[in-house]
Design a protein around this nucleic acid. Structure first.
Lengths: 347, 347
DNA sequence: TTGTATGCGTTATCAT
DNA sequence: ATGATAACGCATACAA
């Protein structure tokens, strides 16, 4: 590879000092530089194909202009979740706009090395977006309390770390209430993730709240743990087939998991929505394309990524902790899997 | 945030010089350092919570230890493709193992700024993995010829840039031949992407080759362009419904696109595989979970990411261009959508 | 075995 | 308006 062109080379060729080059290229205010020199410097820089060295810039400026996106899940699960790509798109868009780069880093929850600390203390990134925090995560809280710019997607129970989230409780309740309104009483739930994640706990709580409101007794046997993948949904469903009475409706707190559930039903000749009604959660891009199209709770995936990145950048630029909580709206999307459009039902 | 702890702080507290600290922490060979000092330095470093500053390290070492992962697609399409996450997992795994970080950067194909050059010349990364190259991409070729470490996922027509890929022609042929073997003669194709991408051209070529081998005339009307998203598949399918004679089988060169096609069929009451047989391409993780489970060509998504990252790291470490071509195996996965298991068909 | 001195390519502060 | 120079934190060749 050709030798690097430095600012000094530009300065020499243009017959000015390094400083002047820096001023021109960075458009420093107040420094009135003759139009002629300015033009000459710009011309030379372009001719020499000069690009400032990012590392040196970081060194001098004391900031990396990198935001880290941390996935707090086992890699196989992190990547199976079809929710992820849209989130990344949201993050990328803001980063792009504000001149940041995105470092992508999966850190499994069981890793005992100090993954977060390392990222921040080594200055790999100026700040972190943490996706899917555990309900308890001391290391994370510690990091925040040390003053590190950390923003969450999802929330942490007992800490006021800035975060972007949806109202998981209310959204889950909305889904289940819809099923109740359609006349169902035996409503089971498959969770989106293991119980150690906040999002799982909250959606479960919403499920319970809806039942309670309708005076339907809660039955522990009607709750099965799904864990982010279609495979886990398939498993969950299998175990539910032998329940008696068999549920007439399912609230599945993740569309990705729901795919696996529906597959298990398909294999067993159980029809959706005729034999069992389903409402999912997330509204992943392909929910509308599967057969039958999935009724679900729409989550603003792009918005979550966008919002988290925005919060973080704000923090970094203004050097003070931004709004602590941003809650985005969700929406019930009625398609076919819940049976609302079947003959006999209104609408 | 607490003031940074530098190597100098560690040296002072331990009562040694900066150099010694550096030697101990980097385990430099040949420098016999007394066990006692070594231990003391290590202890102090740990007590002071010292982490070397990555930026400074980069500066001194002249390398960033970052590999860039570039998506050469319109963002909305890049993220819609369900093939992506597994690729990223493959890249992350290698990067993790070899001590690299991954910079994630979508660069739309129509962008006229020199996206690649910038990344390399600014030294944002030591090398780049480019996903989904266009058939012609002068800028990319230029970069490679300048000696930049660039590895492709997919291949470029007229350049010998190192790449990891599958045999798209042969794989597509395998898919179509399977449909022919099942007795189909009216076989249409929906492409995976627009014609400017190499992968699209090659899969189309494989489709033609299979037809030719079976003496089935090629019909231009039977080829419709899909473009990475379910939406595009839905569109493509709509336009195909009015074809006469209507195809009895479909080769869809992307499972993601196939989802949209199947949805259009579903809406029109056309059954798969009874009315139309389908073979997809990619074997995205959820292909086995949709209804009916999708027969498809399995692509080693994880392996492609892993392989590309591996090639790049090799290049960076050994400072010479690695093997120019790595071709991974594909496999026909027979599920239900192709109708091979229907009554009347053997197997 | 350990310490000294220099370079990496910028930015930014201070003179001129 | 422009130029000299320090500072950023680390690695390393060289000296002791």
């Amino acid at each position: 590879m050709a030798k690097r062109v430095t600012a000094l080379d530009v300065a020499k060729t243009a017959g000015v000092s390094r400083t002047t080059v820096s001023f021109v290229l960075n458009n420093v205010e107040g420094m009135r530089i003759s139009d002629e020199t300015r033009k000459r410097v710009l011309k030379v820089a372009s001719e020499l194909n000069y690009y400032p060295d990012a590392t040196a810039q970081r060194m001098a400026k004391g900031k990396t202009s990198i935001i880290g996106f941390v996935l707090r899940q086992e890699p196989d699960k992190a990547y199976a979740d079809l929710f992820l790509p849209e989130v990344m798109r949201g993050i990328s868009d803001i980063a792009n706009e504000k001149g940041y780069h995105v470092l992508f880093t999966p850190i499994p929850p069981d890793e005992n090395n100090k993954g977060f600390h390392k990222l921040i203390h080594e200055r790999q990134a100026d700040g972190l977006i943490i996706s899917g925090p555990l309900a308890e995560d001391d290391e994370l809280v510690q990091l925040y309390e040390d003053g590190a710019p950390v923003v969450l997607m999802g929330k942490l129970a007992n800490a006021s770390i800035p975060h972007v989230d949806v109202d998981n409780i209310e959204s889950a309740k909305m889904a289940v209430s819809h099923l109740i309104k359609l006349g169902h009483k035996q409503i089971a739930m498959v969770t989106n993730a293991s119980r150690k994640y906040t999002s799982c706990r909250d959606r479960l709580e919403g499920y319970k709240a809806a039942l309670e409101e309708a005076n339907i007794p809660f039955n522990e046997k009607y709750v099965v743990i799904g864990d982010r993948t279609p495979e886990s949904g398939h498993h969950a469903m299998q175990s539910m087939l032998y329940l008696s009475p068999r549920p007439t409706a399912l609230f599945i707190a993740s569309d990705t998991v729901a795919l696996g559930c529906m597959n298990a039903l398909y294999q067993n000749g159980i029809r959706v929505p005729e034999d069992v009604a389903i409402v999912g959660f997330d509204d992943i891009p392909l929910s509308k394309f599967i057969a039958p199209p999935l009724s679900t709770i729409h989550l603003p995936a792009y918005g979550l990524g966008w919002g988290a990145a925005n919060l973080l950048v704000q923090w970094l630029e203004e050097k003070q902790i931004p709004t602590h909580e941003v809650i985005l709206e969700t929406e019930l999307i009625v398609r076919e899997s819940c049976g609302a459009f079947m003959k006999g039902n209104i609408e």
